[in-house]
């Protein structure tokens, strides 16, 4: 399954409360992802919390967008990516 880097911008900043409601929000994202056949691998968040860079596995960019819409998450750009690490040639 292809892997994608999904860039998102949150003009108002972005926060997930560290409590039960935050956990619930994350789990609801996971449940919506499951229905769309995509997997959220992990995300990187900028210090000002206005941009996120999310790694997703999914069948197609359309599936990534559809799931983002269900989760009410913005999408700026989707790039198909592969892993490259410093020890690749060892």
């Amino acid at each position: 399954m292809p892997r994608y880097l999904v860039e998102r911008t949150f003009p108002e900043g972005f926060s997930i409360p560290i409590d039960a409601s935050g956990e619930k929000a994350c789990l609801s994202v996971v449940a919506n992802n499951g229905e769309g056949g995509v997997t959220w691998v992990q995300s990187y968040v900028s210090d000002d919390k206005r941009k996120t860079f999310c790694i997703y596995d999914g069948p197609s960019p359309e599936a990534i967008r559809r799931t983002a819409a269900r989760n009410n998450l913005p999408v700026d750009r989707i790039t198909q990516v592969r892993v490259l690490d410093p020890y690749f040639y060892r």
Binding site: Y4, P61, E62, R65, I78, Q80
Partner: peptide, 13 residues
């Protein structure tokens, strides 16, 4: 149309 749509959205594929 799918290819054209991806082109217009700037999506991969």
């Amino acid at each position: 149309p799918l290819g054209l749509l991806r082109a217009r959205r700037g999506d991969p594929g």
